[in-house]
Design a binder for these strands. Sequence first.
RNA 1: GCCAAGGUGGCAGAAUGGUUAAUGCGACGGACUGCAGAUCCGUUUCCUGGGGGUUCGAUUCCCUCCCUUGGCUCCA
Length: 481
Amino acid sequence: MRRVQIYDTLSRETRLLVPITPPKIGLFVCGLTPYDEAHIGHGRTFVTFDVVARALRRWGYRVFYVQNVTNLDDRLIQRGGEEGIDPLVLAERHFAGWTVSMQRLGVRSVNYYPFATDYVPEILAQVRQLVDGGYAYATTGSVYYDVSRFPAYGKLSGQRIEAQRPGTRVPAEPGKRAPEDFVLWKAATPGEPSWESPWGPGRPGWHIEDTAITVRLLGARYDIHGGGLDLKFPHHEAEIAQAEAATGTSPLVNFWMHAGMLNLGGEKMSKSLGNVIRLAETLDACGPDVLRFFYLNAHYRSPLDFVEGKSLEESAEAFGRFIAPYRRLSGLLEREGAERPGAGLPPETAEAADGLVQRLDEVMASDFNSREAIALLFGWVRNVSALPQPFESLEGGALETLLAPYRWSEEVLGLPIRGDGAGASEELAGAVRIALDARRRARERNDYSEADRIRDELRAAGIHVEDRGGTTHWELRAAPE
RNA sequence: GCCAAGGUGGCAGAAUGGUUAAUGCGACGGACUGCAGAUCCGUUUCCUGGGGGUUCGAUUCCCUCCCUUGGCUCCA
């Protein structure tokens, strides 16, 4: 296992990652509340942690990556009411849309997406623990966390509750002893989904689902907790207070990782500001590779400004140059195979490729510096482009040598994105599904000439079809030249 | 007001107690082309917010001020 340095937001220092139970890494990332479509700010956060998981796995860590889905909260209930839909159904519907976008973006490393409502027994058990331990109190059917009972509250964000401005955004709730106390269990309003509890019918508060899920799935203490920087306070602070009080184990996690915000014209992109750019539309417009490249072209902790009409155009130019040699090399290999005869390369070239891959692992192991990795990869683009021999003259092994740094990029950065439909628009993906469905039916009636005709037509259109163990996969590739 | 993260060339955006501060975009010049495009090559020496301090040496460490963004119970 490679030595990995990670910046921890809690201690504000970069430290060596030491797994609690080597080689396992428990990774929890605060997921989404699917009350609306995903925007490109969400994409940045989830691509960030996708790369973290990919890199750690490459280096021999066994990562268990859990990302929760808050499928019931105030916004879902409100939106469901407006649209006349059961909030749980609404959540299900939007989650499906998020999943499609994330797949297109190449986010593949999440092992499990727990839904909050599937963990109500765990949530109730944890609320019970907190009440019994004197960390929480019940009033009028709701249960609140008593922040004054947890002196470490504020250690993550550096906040001191006495310095807080009195809450102006949310009116004081009746029954709360102090404005900073937060709800663990919320008394039901008629017509809302609710569950029976010792305090009456109700539903979970926002913060409690995460800790109920992580204690169950990852234990009282685990390795890495990730999320957007905007969740640091109060959400992550509340998680620490809940979990450490409930389990008596401190710290809850060894590393807090926070992804920087994606800003739009110098402002954070958020639904409340109304300045969102939808993820699905952006993927259609520029293709997922370009967006993923844009994200990874900055350090994950830095704020990243998105400028309409500029950021993606610039990334498209850069990504195009980055990937051009890859497309030519891999195209040759796919058409003619690794056994293709031809000229070899001087041994220095293979050594340089090995050395570069080493360097790439090093810079990524230094707090996941994807920007530095991309800079190094551009050096390789230059070397490969300036090679005196044309690619067509090289033997298969030489082509693989030249591709080695790209293979690293595919594995760790997820660039280019590979897999079913990566890079395709919704319309194209739909058309391919129809074509593949027709092909499947043709194969079922043993009409292989028709099945092959469909496959050849798709191939001519730049869609590569492959049958693997009973299922059919496809991806966009440059059409045969 | 309090807390946090930042301020690097025309733009985006890395890194580092010490030779020319990466990489990309853009721009300019060239190769290729009938032309264009695509691609490739080269150039782009004058860039580290202001002021102090530590040091032989600071963009990097410390102090201070200014500015930007985020958070202060909706947030990825």
